[in-house]
Computed example of a mutant assay.
Amino acid sequence: MLLLISLENTFKFQAPPREKCACELNNSEKAFPHEKLRIVETNVSNCNSNITPRKVTSLLKLSCCVSPFLVNHCCLCRLWSWREAICLTAGCTMHCIHKSSSRKNNCYTLLPSGTCPRSRLLNVTGPRVYTAGEYPGSYAYGAWGRDPRPEEGKESWYWLVMLTSSNIYAHYVRLYSSLSSLIIGVSNVQIHSSNPTTNTIQGPNNVLYGGALYYNCYNQDYVCRFNLTTKSVTTLQLPKETFTECYPYTDLDLATDESGIWVVYTTTQDFGNLVLSKLEEGETPVLGKTWRTSIYKRAVTNTFMACGVLYATRYINKEVEEIFYSFNTVTGQEKFNIGIFMNKMSTNIQSLNYSPVDQMLHAYCDSNMVSYKVLFG
């Protein structure tokens, strides 16, 4: 911890008799807060010793062990790995927690929703990636992206779900160790041996988070969670009369961002307007806090989350899609004039997923995989 101290000092020199020289120092500054610094160091030490892997995985937000007298009041932190937390306040580069010697999993999601610095979307550029993948032109509907909270050793992996039956159903998810292997490689984790049936994926609105695939359960208003390691499936029932779709079988949309997993849907009680709910992590997903918006679901082609803000897109023409709407879950503020345009490589975008790992939007467009760079304020 580096503290820069500026002192305005006034020196008075005296040359007394004899051959000795004495200096008198008048310090106009307040005394350095040694006691506060000692408390900070103690708190840092306690943080390191008390945070275990079990505790950290259940942590939803992290408070910095710092004092107000530090530069820029460094208090917004992000845990980039279990070994260090880095301050994100503008202009502050100080490490808020010292490095730990023990090796633990990576994490990108401990900021409470709506509080990270990238909460204002400025532009979308690209596309940066455009590929037909293993099966060019074969499956028009699907989804792909990256896990915002990957398992150890899988930080660079990609996932892909293609709707292989009637453009509606899928029963496996493909995993790739790199972008190049996604283009040419073969890899899959099967959910069920036949399709469609119980636990089958229905619709293209899927996400991978923490080593589990979240998707719309076959023929139900349920969110399914498929654990890729144990191959087990758990479910969460959404409020009854969840309805209305734009594309076929898109009654609900799942999204991930820096703070976790979200589900976007509507009900008859909400008159077709979008409803946003946070999914609490766990082996069995639980519906958390819910927000209601005033944007009509059928006016929206896709949604995605970034920094606790819901964004919605609409079809302009064959070449352009517009990000036109946002809803901030912290302030409750809605905006209908975002006006950010995306250049499309094909007519339709069947799914759109934001990746906080690399700040990219991953779009599945008429069997093609396309990604865009997202620029934030």
Rank of each mutant, 00 (worst) to 15 (best):
V173R: 05
N348M: 02
Q14F: 13
E258C: 09
S67T: 15
H73S: 13
Y139L: 03
T42G: 01
C246K: 08
M94Q: 12
C74E: 05
I51L: 02
I86P: 10
T89Y: 02
P136Q: 00
T115W: 07
S277K: 13
E241M: 03
Y141G: 03
T42D: 06
L7F: 14
S294E: 14
G153L: 06
D257F: 13
E134V: 12
N43T: 01
C77P: 12
M162W: 13
L3I: 15
G153Y: 06
K318R: 04
I340R: 00
M360D: 14
N72W: 07
Y108I: 07
W262C: 01
R128Y: 02
S371Y: 13
F324S: 01
S119H: 09
S232R: 11
P239F: 02
E245M: 02
S101M: 09
Y249T: 04
N227Q: 07
S193C: 00
A31T: 13
G210A: 03
K104Y: 10
L62F: 14
I261Y: 03
N123P: 11
T347C: 04
V275T: 12
P16L: 06
S180P: 03
Y215P: 07
T10D: 10
L7D: 06
V264M: 07
H95Y: 15
E152I: 15
C365Q: 08
P150S: 13
Y372C: 03
W157K: 11
L37K: 14
E281Y: 00
E241I: 02
P117K: 11
E84V: 13
L236A: 04
C64I: 13
T303H: 02
S63C: 13
S138F: 08
P150D: 12
R78I: 09
I316W: 11
Y176E: 14
V233H: 05
A255C: 08
T93S: 14
P150W: 03
